[in-house]
Computed example of a mutant assay.
Amino acid sequence: KHGTRWVLGGSAFSPSSIITKRRAQTQAAVLAEEVGCSSSTNGEIVACLRQLPARVLNDAQTKLLAISGPFQYWGPVMDGVYLREPLAKALQRSQLRKVDLLIGSAQQDGLISRAKAIKKFEESQGRANSKTAFYQALQNSLGGEDSNKFIEDAATWYYSLEHSTDDYSSFSRALENATRDQFITCPIINMANHWAANSRGNVFMYHVPESSAQSLELLLDVQYAFGLPFYPKYEERFTLDEKRLSLQIMQYISNFVNSGNPNYPHSFSRRMSGLMPLWPMFLPNDDGDNYKEFTASLPTLKGLKKEDCSFWSDYIRRLKESTGEAVAFWLSLNHLKWTENDI
């Protein structure tokens, strides 16, 4: 009897894990207006949007990304009925049984490819060398519904400090790095830490570094895990080393599904499959942040994005707390003034 396993490419700790009902309605209305589906009733808007080809909706979203930031994402809505609380809060509750977790990220994540659409849109508008788009997109993506000017300024400084003032490509990369770290990679690491620290099950983490290997829309970890290098339509695009890597990754995942451990094919086994490199668990201590890098030699590395994630997990958290206290203090002072004036 198999236990419970999760294979995840995302995290409940990501700011993008859920959106509010208000935000979802606003985004739908803006998109509807952009594609000519404006109406006085929600039913008519939905019916109109459903009739449009996906290409039309994607093109409209590309334009909206450039105007409003790369993370005008669609996601689950915290409506108080089906989803009643933030996912990170739900994870704080005790769990009756353990769930083994295999979780990972990719440098060329799909959300990041959406951020790149900003540059294409700017080029089409004749603003290819402008850095304004970077700052605006970064601030919009970091601001969201709980915009905090202190956080926007801190992230802009952290990710653009070493960049020249006239190199658009540098600012574009900074935008990709900032949004990837905040929304994808660091939340994944936080979830691995939470899972391991609370003994919720075995935790194994991986990362796929940037690669120029394939231009297919699917991320490399998805391509390898589902054996795309062996599909007749695509196999000529992959090298022998990439096909070998795909076989090993498929074996790892198959083992994990069967035993809760990517190293062993069965729960009762202590013999590794073939000659694959050992994949050590992610552990909740300073030296336990192991992850498997999905490259030809499948090396085990440590400390994925440690400094960048410290910026978000430590510095930004303290900044939120301090600025929140400052705002609360300012409001209390003004409330006191208003009360004194009333008296």
Rank of each mutant, 00 (worst) to 15 (best):
Q214T: 15
L142T: 08
G324I: 00
Q108P: 00
F329I: 06
A154K: 03
W195F: 02
D59V: 12
H207N: 15
S322P: 00
S269C: 04
S38T: 07
T323S: 11
A196N: 05
S254Q: 07
G110C: 06
V35A: 14
K1C: 03
A128G: 07
Q95E: 15
A66V: 03
A115M: 03
G3N: 15
K1Y: 11
E325K: 08
E176H: 08
S39V: 05
S17L: 06
F226S: 12
N42G: 11
R317F: 04
Q139V: 02
T323E: 05
W157C: 03
K337P: 00
F121L: 02
N193W: 06
N177R: 12
F282V: 04
I184T: 12
N140Y: 12
I249R: 02
L111T: 11
N290I: 02
A115W: 04
F238R: 06
T339R: 05
A117S: 10
Y231N: 09
V56A: 15
Q136S: 07
S259F: 09
F13R: 13
S113V: 00
K149R: 01
D153L: 02
E162S: 11
H207P: 07
G303F: 10
F13C: 12
I189P: 01
A66I: 05
L111W: 09
F294N: 04
Q182I: 10
L91E: 09
F256H: 06
I253F: 14
R244W: 09
R244F: 08
H207S: 15
N140T: 01
I184R: 08
D314A: 02
S124E: 10
S310F: 07
A192G: 06
K89I: 13
E325W: 06
L216Y: 14
N202W: 01
W330G: 06
E210N: 13
N285Y: 07
A128I: 12
Y135S: 02
W74C: 05
A24S: 13
G303Y: 08
I112T: 15
F230R: 08
A90T: 11
G9A: 10
P280Q: 08
W195K: 01
N58A: 09
N148D: 15
Q108D: 10
W330E: 12
R180P: 00
F226W: 09
A115R: 03
S246W: 09
V222I: 13
